[in-house]
Computed example of a mutant assay.
Amino acid sequence: MAQLIFASSNIATYIHLTFMSLITVCLCFFLCFIVVVFSIFFTSPQLRENARYILFVYMLVNDTFFLLSGFTVLVGAIYFLYIPVPVCYILNAVSFLTFRVTPTTLAAMALEKYIAICYPLRHKDLCTTQRANVAFILICTTQIIPNAADLGLMASSFRTTFNISIICRKENLFVNPLQNVLRSLSFALCYVLVAIIILFTYIKISMVAHRVSSQSSNASKARRTILLHTFQLLLCTMSLLSTFTDALPASQAMFLPGFNFLVFSCVPRFLSPVIYGIRDEYLRGLIKKSLTRQFKN
């Protein structure tokens, strides 16, 4: 019996190390890409004056905070690290906030594509840099409201909770049943609204693409971009299934925390560089020039 327990423990250790290694490698590549994009963005006036790229950079920053905070929480949960409640709550609050900001920003980017294709003559007037900045500020402001309500519920229930250290898991921060209800409602409202916007923009852009015979038209490319946004949203939505898998016994779900974070949290964020960093011809050209210059140096 002791040998079986020891073997099971070794298997769990290897599984955790495998997923943690994969996540770490992916994060390193993601962070390297962000450094390249930032260096290009701040040295290219054309990018800084384009609402599409402004929203893209904002989303990359948001995804960076999400991945780093989520990775920290994952390490603490897997290795049973006790963290002070205020620190644990801040990490979870950042992860909770940035998790919802990403799909909402996707919706804003889909609307920008919709305006560019369906109202090209008004695109420059409607999609300005100022409006892109204001749009992202409004997105973050509206998404902070559930966090503030969650903190109020937690503080009003058990004020002494903030004086202890716990294993940093989100379920350990649910000291009031209303917290879970609030989070579920905020997720549902966020994703339903985003899904409606993405569906609306896809239908409208598809109608324009249908009227244009050339498959290489901007409308056809925009339609494929919206489809990729839909796939991103689907993966983000599937990550909510981790709420049910986290409740499984550790013996049955030893690999699930790392698997859930890698597949349903990391992959949707790693798709963003593919969509706007590789498929976008203009940005792809700038990235190639930047990398070539760095390798020569």
Score class of each variant (00 low, 15 high):
Phe200His: 12
Tyr89Pro: 00
Phe136Val: 12
Pro146Lys: 03
Val175Cys: 04
Thr104Trp: 09
Leu173Glu: 03
Ser165Ala: 13
Gln215Thr: 15
Ile203Glu: 10
Val208Gly: 00
Met207Phe: 06
Tyr202Lys: 10
Thr201Arg: 02
Ile90Gly: 04
Phe187Tyr: 12
Ser186Cys: 03
Met207Ile: 07
Ser206Cys: 12
Thr129Glu: 15
Lys113Asp: 08
Tyr114Phe: 14
Ser184Ala: 14
Ala135Val: 14
Phe187Met: 08
Met109His: 06
Glu112Phe: 04
Ser186Gly: 02
Ser213His: 14
His123Met: 10
Val87Met: 12
Asn147Phe: 05
Phe162Tyr: 11
Ile203Met: 07
Asn147Ala: 06
Ser95Asp: 05
Thr102Asp: 03
Leu199Ile: 13
Leu199Gly: 08
Leu151Gly: 01
Phe200Thr: 04
Ser217Ile: 05
Thr105Val: 10
Arg100Val: 01
Leu178Ile: 06
Lys204Met: 10
Cys118Ala: 10
Leu185Arg: 02
Arg183Glu: 11
Cys88Asp: 02
Ala108Gly: 11
Asn92Gly: 03
Ala135Phe: 08
Ala209His: 08
Lys204Pro: 01
Ala108Leu: 15
Arg169Ile: 12
Ile117Gln: 07
Pro120Asn: 05
Pro146Cys: 03
Met109Phe: 10
Pro103Cys: 04
Gly152Gln: 08
Ser184Ile: 12
Phe99Lys: 01
Thr98Val: 00
Ala108Asp: 05
Ser213Val: 11
Ala149Trp: 09
Cys88Thr: 03
Cys190Pro: 01
Thr104Cys: 12
Ile166Val: 15
Phe96Tyr: 15
Arg211Pro: 00
Thr98Cys: 07
Thr102Pro: 00
Lys204Asn: 09
Asn133Cys: 04
Ser165Asp: 09
Ser216Thr: 14
Ile144Asp: 00
Ser216His: 14
Arg100Ile: 02
Val85Thr: 09
Ile203His: 08
Ala110Ser: 14
Phe136Tyr: 10
Asn92Trp: 15
Glu112Tyr: 06
Lys221Glu: 12
Leu97Ile: 04
Ala107Cys: 06
Pro86Gln: 10
Ala110Pro: 02
His123Ala: 15
Thr129Val: 07
Ser214Ala: 13
Ile144His: 03
Ala222Asn: 07
Gly152Ile: 09
Ala222Ser: 15
Ile144Val: 13
Tyr119His: 15
Val94Trp: 00
Thr128Ile: 09
Phe99Met: 06
His123Pro: 00
Ile90Lys: 08
Glu171Asp: 13
Asp125Ala: 14
Ser217Trp: 07
Arg159Ala: 11
His123Phe: 09
